[in-house]
Design a protein around this nucleic acid. Structure first.
Lengths: 139, 139
DNA sequence: ATTATTCTATACTGCAAAGTTATAGAATAA
DNA sequence: TTATTCTATAACTTTGCAGTATAGAATAAT
């Protein structure tokens, strides 16, 4: 039930891009160095973020990646749901076909409620909020 | 970030014992049959539940397992926290030694808040609550 | 006492997913 | 034309989940 490195690194990746939102496209190499994560791994993680149109990219020299929307409009909940493959704690949450007992299962609704409480918390925080917090922490 | 079968099966195991709380010790074989889970696996899962004194056991013929407290006094949150190895979403939540950035990390607190929201939901539900719900669902 | 039954302890195994790296190719600014 | 950066696909390694096996200890029933 722990978060994977995908969503944790992905959040840091997005946060790094948020920090550089006004500096044009940033290359992954730079982000990798700053965050201490391998470029190759970040290249994997950024794919779904591009597909979901949170990130735009440009190839070639002076290329790089940049947020497709301002940091105020992207929440951590969206990032985590994307990289963790859904905002649920069980397969049965939004697909009752995977379990015969789904319709009478007393815990199914509970797992759903718990996941919702968790994601409600994450969706209340934007990248801009995290940036502010970073500055506050560094003082 | 999905729940493991350990906590899901563990919850069903506890729920089965809750249902039989007034029938004396139940052997795992019976529970395994009812729940469609292998005895061997349940034997593994029940160990931490015994250590944490949620379950008492008796060996020999007519032996079996029984809840150590009434179903009203055991919450799903306790079971899940026990079987998922803590009520957190990251290793750093309650052990900052695992990450250099722990003290300035802007996401660390957020992962903690999210986990807390989730477990607050799970801790609000007891085995007795789930039993009631089961009856309601079967009507 | 002996036996059948049930739990207990420990160790092992298979497999899928997580995490990571490698290679080759396509786009583009200089 | 070249250097640079992203893109696509595949391969690899490690870890941990899920499940099984074996041997042993306790105890109720006979």
């Amino acid at each position: 039930m722990k978060l994977s490195t995908r969503s944790r690194y992905g959040t840091r990746l997005m946060l790094d891009m948020a920090e550089n939102y006004n500096n044009g496209p940033i290359h992954l190499m730079k982000i990798a160095q700053r965050q201490g994560i391998s470029v190759k791994y970040l290249e994997q993680i950024i794919i779904p973020l591009k597909k979901a149109e949170y990130v735009k990219s440009l190839r070639g020299p002076k290329g790089g990646h940049i947020l497709a929307k301002p940091p105020e409009e992207i929440t951590v909940g969206e990032i985590v749901a994307l990289l963790e493959d859904g905002a649920s704690l069980t397969e049965c949450s939004y697909n009752e076909g995977v379990c015969e007992r789904a319709d009478i299962c007393p815990t199914r609704q509970l797992w759903r409620d718990a996941a919702q409480a968790m994601f409600k918390t994450l969706e209340a925080v934007t990248l801009a909020d995290l940036l502010e917090k970073t500055k506050a922490n560094q003082k």
